[in-house]
Amino acid sequence: MPEAPKSQNLLVVLTWIIVTLPTAWGLSYTIKNALKLFHPQPAVTSPGPSASH
């Protein structure tokens, strides 16, 4: 089986960066929100929005 050209390796890195960047942005935003779970909050008993499935 022929070996993949070196230029393709660079293309692989680039394509992964294209999909990783928006994911990392979304993940950091979600982690910031998730951290609120570990901070003590004054209790309010009204139900909040439900999660999406």
Partner: peptide, 9 residues
């Protein structure tokens, strides 16, 4: 509610 948002996240 803030903790709940964190839980959903």
């Amino acid at each position: 509610p803030a903790a709940a948002v964190g839980f959903v996240g």
